[in-house]
Design a protein around this nucleic acid. Structure first.
Lengths: 224, 224, 224, 224
DNA sequence: TAGTAAGCGAGACGGTACGTCTAGTCTTCTG
DNA sequence: CAGAAGACTAGACGTACCGTCTCGCTTACTA
């Protein structure tokens, strides 16, 4: 039924979809979340409001779709040869993604909105968060194969650890950019990676020995 | 000038300030950020809209002040005897603070808005973030005195490290609650603290040895 | 262009127009000009404020249109058989029109406002004043045909005289009702008509011969 | 009691009264009735709102007092030697009074407001209207002494006639200026005076003999 | 000459209405 | 039927004045 349902009448314009999502991103950059209005988006896209509402039920869902596309474009987990380099790369990429004017703000706003809306939360998670989380899991798996991380027996435990790591990585980047309002530059990425890999007790001194450290994935922790 | 200004005319009612901030918190709990209207806040506070606008220029600024008070009430850095216990306590407290219905969502929304508003960002930082950050620095200093962390020579380096740690701790809690939408319970707090203290390379296996770990501040890292 | 304009989109609801004008008249009667609010009118009409503002830019314009309809309903210049009777009828009708609670006050207020607003003045004139003035001209023409008034050669002179007569008739009624706050009853109508037709020098004594006068359209002027 | 009541305390500033009334007139000219605000008047007068409200209960009363002064300045009934000249002079003076930007508009608005306010109507009448009416009565008395008008026996009848004449004269001037929005120039004043004195039946043709007419107080009526 | 009762400026207060804006829906005509 | 155009209901927005109030200060009469 689903494929045969839309046989009759004028077909929906794919052009319109593209124009709307593009206009949404442009408007987000210019106006920010709060001042973004659907009427304005429709006008920018050269589309009637009706058309817009036929496809998206609300501002939130529209924005989720609009920024999801941007996130997707930047999804890749290249193998850099070591856990340290892989983490650093993920941090940098996540940072540059959230640094873009249309993504960071919008994501925050959508998430804030999603606190009261279970459906929206799911949509955000499946469209954006989970796909990023996969990167972390892929990287961890590679590290295990390289012997940099121990194998984990308990699958439930493993999933819990993956979540913890993702919360830590993504949260730190988010906080750095959104709240501290500082850039995620290479130095910060390196420092954070050191902290994540070797911990506070080990990394604190590691940061001081700045120069040669980055390559040293084997740096002995517990150097207190 | 500041003290001598405002000498003339009827003085502003301190009672009104209190009523407004209280009403704002109540409305946040009941309605959430999105449905919060200044008119409603004024009505709840038994105050004219004018009075509210005289003091706060926008919904954002009002909410920042309203939730800043909540954050302030929960500010304390009790000495739990070890770095591990101190970190865990901070995580738990930060979590329970952001889990409250009036704070988490509101904070996120305000921060999203602050992306376009430098003044608002400053206000958020000085009213909320920086005061929390102090907790981290106090805890770190105590850990140094206990010998759990090395002394740092370079003050600039030290400040950078403090920022990094705060971004990591606060970011992880924020992400866990807001985006993963999972609770910050004691187990997560312990797991995260392990990760923070001993790093991915050390802590990953540590989490498996769940039971007796918390006391084990001396847990050997480098267990890969 | 004018007819081809507005081809597209949903047409304005004629029902709404009627409801709004009716509600305006009702509100004028109940509340008077000063307490009339557009929000209240919209509510009475069961219409959103936006709909009201789409059509009328201000309270004044709305009220002009609302009372113009009332004036229109009462426009007619029946032939009473003599100039005297015609004038009396016009005076009575104009009086009863301005005595109505929704018209008199509102008209005065609108006119007061029109002193600073050329566009409004035109609107008042075309919607209300000029249509009343036609009555005077029709009556005058009839009187000429009857031979009660001399034929006028100069058309410009004729127009000037029509204006003068209208100013005198309408002004007297207006002043009697609005400023002297006395009713326009049959006796006053007769006295005024005598004055208008025969002048101060003739009518003054005429008024004294009160009883039999009304029928006496042939009363000799110059009876001083 | 009344004179002894205000014995104690600081006396009210006469300067403030003058400043307020002056500011009111100025604001009326600039802004018109509708946009005139008491706060603005107070500011222009360099006076606190309290001071203003201590003296006048409302915008209307303030404006009545403010323009009454202007009317008073122009009150005089010089003897021009004939009824015709006297009427013409009154018409011209009344016209030039109402033509002033601050008086005409304000008077209309106040009168409109007075429709709902008996006390205000009395105030207007005693402060403005009745004093003008006296001019008419004085003129009529002079005309009787000159023999231009017959003596009237019945005092009640006489009063009624005075009212009628005043309504006609003032009403025509008012209507000409406020509603027709035409100036009260010498020609109109002469035409109107002709109409008033000789009536429609006599004056209509009189206007045609434009040139030398004004002096012709002896023009035979009944010229139809 | 000290009180004291009012006047005064300044400006905050509770209200009411304003006119504008946006959300989301509905109605019409055109392609 | 989809789409554009735009009118529609509903309701929050932030502003402007209203008329009242609360201050601290000034001014003149009175005891």
């Amino acid at each position: 039924m689903s494929p045969s349902a839309r046989r009759t009448g004028r077909p929906r314009s794919a052009e319109a979809d593209r124009a709307i999502l593009g206009a949404t991103r442009a408007a987000l950059v210019e106006l920010g979340w709060a001042k973004l209005t659907l009427g304005d988006v429709a006008a920018r896209a050269g589309v009637a409001k009706t058309t817009l509402y036929r496809r998206w039920a609300s501002k939130c869902e529209l924005v989720v779709d609009a920024i999801a596309a941007v996130f997707d474009e930047h999804l890749e987990a290249t193998d850099r040869g070591s856990l340290h380099a892989d983490v650093e790369a993920v941090v940098i990429r996540l940072g540059s993604l959230l640094e873009r004017p249309e993504t960071g703000t919008a994501l925050m706003a959508v998430i804030a909105e999603a606190m009261h809306d279970e459906a929206l939360r799911c949509r955000v998670r499946s469209a954006i968060v989970d796909r990023q989380k996969r990167l972390v899991m892929v990287g961890r798996e590679r590290a295990r194969l390289r012997g940099e991380l121990p194998r984990e027996e308990d699958p439930e435990e493993s999933a819990r650890n993956a979540d913890l790591i993702f919360d830590t990585v993504a949260g730190a980047v988010l906080h750095r950019l959104m709240i501290s309002a500082e850039p995620v530059d290479p130095r910060w990425a390196r420092d954070f990676t050191d902290l994540l890999l070797y911990g506070l007790t080990g990394a604190d001194s590691g940061g001081a020995a700045a120069g040669p450290a980055p390559d040293g994935a084997q740096k002995p922790a517990g150097s207190v």
